[in-house]
Structures are given as structure tokens and as C-alpha cells.
Nucleic acid binder design. Structure first.
Length: 325
RNA sequence: GGACGGGUGGGUGAGUGGCUAAAACCAGCAGACUGUAAAUCUGCCGCUCCUUGCGGGCUACGGAGGUUCGAAUCCUCCCCCGUCCA
């Protein structure tokens, strides 16, 4: 087999927020000669550090991290864009014979990378604006009726209340001049040349929630509010995409004096709990995940993870040897 | 001590005689999701039984009685909370 196409191992650590994905990712990378690749829609943005739980340099233990701080706050993250960047990162790692260790919070992005995306038109802000406008004029149900006409099958799958998904579906149909369903049928291009090993972190619900609460408090103590203040003082528009992220929107409201710190804290903890739940729902459906019950910073769990990877052909201090696997 | 106002399901809070296991919202649980995904959306949400049905039973609107064919809704007394007057 020619090395360019050899199936090299790729590790993906999935799990809900605050389950210790980064800690496990760094540790595994250290043990196995790898580098961390973040798969997180929020860590993509530079400047938004505390609330997105980016590892500080010291916590990275010298392990290179990729796909963190690669977008300016004014830019828009998308699944397709992430896929492109991740493919580039993978090519780089392959060239240097390093093991990629993905830390995955955004399930959609991982799926976009591994399974590919159908070849669909990109979003068009102008078209979306027009659709939103006529939706307002014609009242509820309008977008759903439009989609039914363009693509009945897609309309059945999307709830009439889900404006965001309806708009994307309509947008695709109009721009491609073809039903979305048909475009989906033409298939996607899955990732080639990598053998994916997924490890899932599944701490108990109560313990996870407790961590979420504690982490929120720690973020507050680390000057999260100050970070938000300086982002806004630096001239960033209040409606920049990252201000939609959990915590950033609440702290923006604190600075506008529409929320007290205590209210913000409670709202953030709650939103984070719900987010973790949605992640769990998504990851439960992910195929072939090796689930470990606990947190990623637990040494015992780390050993288990390492053991499992070894059993599956990931070789310590890999590099040239791994190519022979 | 007196005068009002109020006590409703985990929370807020609608409901002033039957259409009410009780609006709405929140929380919670479950789920969907191929380019906004830390987003967006959907379902369930007192207990229980079965032949899982716009099905049956039980419990529920501070407490105890009462009126009524029927009460969260009306009456009586009691308890508690708030405001005001002494």
C-alpha cells in the first residue's frame, strides 16, 4: 500500500461539554505522539477564550493544537468551512506522521468531516433576508408551504416551526434549482485514508452537572466578564456571531445592565446543562463509539482509553512504524 | 385587635359553578437535526391499570365542613402570607 493512501489511525474524543475532552485529548497526544485538533464551533473564534473553555498554553503541555483561534469574530463558522480546514490539518499531520486527536464538542462538524457533506450551495445572505422578509409578511406556515412545493419530502422532515432549517432547505432548492432530497441522494464524500477510533466520555449526569456549575464559577473568577467587556470596548459589534454563544450573550446583558451577575450565572449554568444534554443526544447516535464512564481528566479512565487505542493498533511513539500497520 | 388583598401542579401564574388533570411560560425528561449547530426545532411532563383509547380508576387547587346533579370556582369556620389601620 502506498503511504499516501495508507489508513492511518485518527482518534476522536467525543462527549458533552465539561466532560474533560481536552484533558484526555492532550494526554493521549502526549502518550502517542499526536497533536490535538479541536472540533468545536466556538473555539474557532479568537478572542473568545474563557467562556469557550479553551485550554491555556500551560495546559497544552507543549502539544500543538489546531483549529483554535482561526476565525475572527466577524467571520461565520460553518460545517463546510470546518471540514475544509480539518482536511488541511489532516494533510499536515499525515505529512509529519503525527497522530490526530480530535476533541469533539460539535457533533455536526465531526460528521461533516468523517461522512462528508452533500455538494450543496453555500448560504446566501441576500436570499435568506428575502425569505425571512416574506415569511413575516405571509405569516406562520408560509416557509413550510414553499418548501412543500419545492421538495415535499424535505418538508415532511422539517417541522413547520423550524425557520432556520426551512430557510436552509429552501435556499438550497432555489440556488441549485433542484430538490434538496435529490441532492442528498447524490451522496456525500466520506473521509478517505484514515481509520477512525472514537472514544466517548460519559460521566454520570449529576456529576456532569456539578462540573458544569463549578466550571462556570471558575470562569467567572477568571475574569470572564472582563473579557467580554474588553471585546465590546474593542469595538466588536454586539451582534457578532460569538455573542450568541452560551455565556457571552448573558454577560453582554450584564454589561447592558439588563441582568445581574447572579441571574447571568444561573442562566449560563442552565443553558450549559441543556447544551450538554443535546450533545449527549447527538453522540448517542454516533456509530462505533467506545464509551467510557467518567471524566477525561481521570487517570484511570485515561489509562483505559490508551489501552483501548493500543488494542486497536495505535502504537506508542508512532510515526514511521505506524505506517506499517 | 381591625380592614383589605392573597394562598392553584417542581417554579412563576391564568382560571370565578360543568367544555379543568387544570391555560401560558419556565424548569425537567426524551428526541430530531447534511453548511447559524454553545444554533434551531419536536414530543412528553400528577399517580396508576389495561384490550394503548379523543380508554378506565385514583389523587389534586391552604385545612375542615357545607350548598349543588356537579366546586379550584359559592357559603361557614379555621390556619398561613402580604399591605394598611390601631
Amino acid at each position: 500500500m502506498n503511504p499516501e493512501n495508507a489508513h492511518l489511525p485518527l482518534v476522536a474524543v467525543v462527549g458533552p461539554t465539561a466532560s474533560g475532552k481536552s484533558a484526555l485529548g492532550v494526554w493521549l497526544a502526549e502518550q502517542l505522539g499526536g497533536e490535538v485538533v479541536a472540533c468545536d464551533s466556538t473555539q474557532l473564534y479568537s478572542g473568545f477564550d474563557i467562556g469557550t473553555a479553551k485550554h491555556a498554553l500551560a495546559e497544552r503541555h507543549g502539544v500543538p493544537h489546531h483549529l483554535i483561534d482561526v476565525l475572527a469574530p466577524e467571520e461565520a463558522a460553518t460545517a463546510g468551512g470546518y471540514r475544509q480546514m480539518a482536511l488541511a490539518a489532516l494533510a499536515d499531520l499525515r505529512g509529519r506522521a503525527r497522530l490526530p486527536v480530535f476533541t469533539v464538542g460539535t457533533g455536526l462538524y465531526l460528521r461533516a468531516l468523517l461522512e462528508g457533506l452533500a455538494d450543496l450551495p453555500q448560504r446566501s445572505e441576500e436570499l435568506r433576508e428575502r425569505l425571512r422578509h416574506s415569511a413575516l409578511e405571509h405569516g406562520p406556515g408560509y416557509l413550510h408551504r414553499i418548501l412543500s412545493r419545492l421538495d415535499g419530502e424535505a418538508a415532511q422532515k422539517i417541522s413547520a416551526g423550524d425557520e432556520q432549517k426551512l430557510i436552509r432547505a429552501i435556499e438550497v432548492c432555489l440556488l441549485a434549482k433542484m430538490p434538496l432530497t435529490e441532492l442528498h441522494r447524490s451522496g456525500r464524500a466520506p473521509l478517505q485514508g484514515w481509520r477512525v477510533l472514537k472514544i466517548g466520555l460519559a460521566p454520570g449526569r449529576e456529576a456532569l452537572y456539578a462540573r458544569i456549575h463549578a466550571r462556570t464559577d471558575a470562569m467567572f473568577a477568571n475574569g470572564w466578564l472582563e473579557e467580554v467587556r474588553s471585546l465590546l470596548d474593542g469595538g466588536l459589534p454586539e451582534d457578532a456571531k460569538p455573542f450568541d454563544f452560551i455565556g457571552y450573550r448573558e454577560l453582554r446583558e450584564v454589561l447592558r445592565r439588563r441582568l445581574t451577575m447572579d441571574e447571568a450565572r444561573a442562566a449560563i449554568q442552565q443553558a450549559t446543562r441543556r447544551y450538554a444534554k443535546r450533545q449527549l443526544t447527538w453522540f448517542r447516535r454516533e456509530h462505533a463509539v467506545h464509551w467510557l464512564a467518567g471524566f477525561g481528566d481521570d487517570p484511570l479512565l485515561q489509562q483505559e482509553a490508551l489501552q483501548w487505542l493500543r488494542e486497536h493498533g495505535v502504537i506508542q511513539g508512532r510515526g514511521a512504524e505506524a505506517r506499517r500497520v
